[in-house]
């Protein structure tokens, strides 16, 4: 049962399923799976902010984009090695998120949602128009490949194996974190802010930490994305993607790492599976989303968790 799964088991399961799929899937499906793996990392990050701490951020894609652009600019314009650029991108994104977190996180509910949405829109406008730095809407092509032991990590299959290691590590760390006192402090701050303060929890700091952690995962996802597609443009990080992350988490099951992964994989593949519907596929997709929201409000993970539907599986220790 999902409730008792330890972080290491989860990591092992991700690697086993992923590696098995990397052998059997076609090149095209592998590409989608790579995208799902990268997206899953971002959604696991979003779960810190929304699932644990209850922060409705609609600017998550801007953090993904900020990191991807940092990697792209450092590797193309200044010729850094990707291995040096990635940590730099993650550190820069986390720092930025913490700095804006302090003033921003005084807002709650839909105020925070709209402020972060505005942030994401602003990020898009800047990347689409700052030609000398970002190449505008043409984006940045030719991001150099990652090299490991002198070999390029090229081709969908090899990249998948590489990405899976990141996903497994992030998922295991997220699960362990969620069960730790820090994870509990985040859940407490969301459940009852005043009771949390009365339990000695520094609610502001916990919120900023959740926000920064979510940005850290987003940054890892962004760096991987830049290295995977090797060509990035502003529309890869529009606010629509932020809303998609929220949708993935709610469909998968908020507050759950497994739910975050399920939601990311399902909503990445679903549009492709619906291709046969032609132009109608997005309409059908939206109708399905509505059905899930109405009939399965606690997400897909609640299907596996009938006995204690009110509890957060991974919150348990």
């Amino acid at each position: 049962m999902a409730t008792r799964r330890s972080p290491l088991l989860l990591a092992a399961a991700i690697l086993a399923v992923g590696l098995a799929l990397s052998v059997v899937l076609s090149e095209y499906n592998l590409r989608l799976l790579n995208l799902s793996v990268i997206t899953a990392i971002a959604v696991i990050g979003f779960n810190f902010a929304f699932g644990l701490a209850g922060l409705i951020s609609l600017g998550h894609a801007a953090f993904v984009g900020m990191s991807a652009y940092t990697v792209a600019i450092l590797t193309t314009a200044t010729g850094w090695s990707p291995w040096a650029a990635i940590p730099m991108a993650v550190a820069g994104t986390v720092l930025f998120s913490a700095l804006i977190g302090y003033p921003l996180l005084r807002l709650k509910g839909h105020y925070l949602a709209l402020a972060t949405l505005g942030l994401n829109v602003s990020f898009f406008i800047i990347t689409a128009n700052w030609l000398s730095l970002t190449g505008g809407t043409n984006g940045i092509p030719g991001i150099p490949q990652l090299r490991l032991h002198g070999y390029f990590i090229s081709g969908e299959r090899y990249f998948l194996r590489f990405g899976l290691v990141f996903l497994a590590a992030v998922a295991a760390a997220a699960l362990a974190f969620q069960r730790s006192r820090h994870g509990r402090a985040m859940i407490a701050a969301r459940d009852d802010e005043i009771a949390a303060a009365m339990s000695g929890i520094d609610v502001t700091r916990v919120r900023v930490a959740a926000f920064a952690l979510s940005a850290a995962c987003a940054a890892v996802a962004g760096a991987l994305f830049a290295e995977h597609v090797r060509f990035i443009a502003p529309e890869d990080f529009g606010y629509v993607h932020s809303i998609t992350y929220l949708a993935m988490l709610i469909v998968g099951g908020e507050g759950s790492v497994v739910g975050a992964i399920l939601g990311a994989v399902l909503l990445t593949f679903l549009p492709e599976w619906l291709r046969f519907l032609g132009n109608a596929y997005l309409a059908f997709f939206a109708a399905m989303m509505l059905a899930i929201l109405i009939f399965l409000p606690r997400g897909l993970v609640s299907l596996f968790r009938r006995r204690a539907p009110r509890r957060i599986a991974e919150g348990r220790s």
């Binding site: 006192r181 402090a185 407490a188 009852d192 009771a195 009365m198 348990r316």
Partner: peptide, 22 residues
């Protein structure tokens, strides 16, 4: 508090642990 304020997404033990931890 007057009506009792608990963390609804946690078990009894986890509720009590939050304060023990901080």
């Amino acid at each position: 508090f007057q009506h009792g304020r608990l963390f609804s997404r946690m078990s009894v033990l986890e509720n009590v642990m939050t304060a023990a931890e901080t």
